[in-house]
Design a protein around this nucleic acid. Sequence first.
DNA 1: AATTTAAATGCAAAATATTTGCATTTAGAA
DNA 2: TTCTAAATGCAAATATTTTGCATTTAAATT
Lengths: 138, 138
Amino acid sequence: MKQATRTLLRQYNLRITQSRSLVLQAMLSTKTPLTHKEIHRKILKTDGSISLVTVYRILEAYENIGLVHRHLSTGSFILCSLQGEKGHHVMLSCQDCGTVAECIDKDFCKHEDRIAKSAGFSPKAHLSELIGICSSCS
Amino acid sequence: MKQATRTLLRQYNLRITQSRSLVLQAMLSTKTPLTHKEIHRKILKTDGSISLVTVYRILEAYENIGLVHRHLSTGSFILCSLQGEKGHHVMLSCQDCGTVAECIDKDFCKHEDRIAKSAGFSPKAHLSELIGICSSCS
DNA sequence: AATTTAAATGCAAAATATTTGCATTTAGAA
DNA sequence: TTCTAAATGCAAATATTTTGCATTTAAATT
């Protein structure tokens, strides 16, 4: 079992199991969003053993605690690259290589809030994704 | 068949059919996101007749032309309230009443672009949703 | 107004995706 | 080492989405 995955699991107060480690490994080894089935297949290919049902259950847990996020445009999963960092996470999806990165901007919420206020809306949470071309592809 | 729906369909150069009108009526009569099945049930309840398969096909078409949008946090459908208006549509989802409105802000893209640029990213399209309390609920 | 034709629809069935119940295994505390 | 709640796997149940094909229909044409 990879050490990096144990560390992550411990950080999030999750029981350290083979299956959970395998799911993390599968997601750490790519920057593109993955479906349940893709993660399952990836694990089997690398000689791991896991049931698809377990992948469902693990991803649900990871999503609830914010360890993974759903990619807005596809609904697939990405490992959040900014664990624990406060602030509004913005996804940057590259149309060319498929990579999804996340970034945080301090001022962003302020602008969102201003826009919201002008519509009489009080925002508590935010979802955003920018779709375009990443630095390595341009 | 309601006149408002005929007008919308004509605007979008879609054949004017009973089914398409019924889907629009179902969506016009609520401000909360609806699933395929919810739209189907709603139509049957109001004495309309349509098959669930047709609801799938119509929503796919409506989504492709931007007449409806997918609500980011749930994946359900909302009728875009800003048809044809250019610019970045931001969804405002009320946690209290469930209403989803859309608004446009001219400056928003500029801020997003600035944030993106600082990460070396060139944005082409945007998705955003603010989750909070709407004006009528607060 | 009748004719024609491509597009739209419905139905049944297939294919996929997701959830559930229950027996077994396992991580980690005692 | 022992114990227990949590995690897992399997099989089956549900739910969702797609597909093939026959029929119907909107609307263009005559």
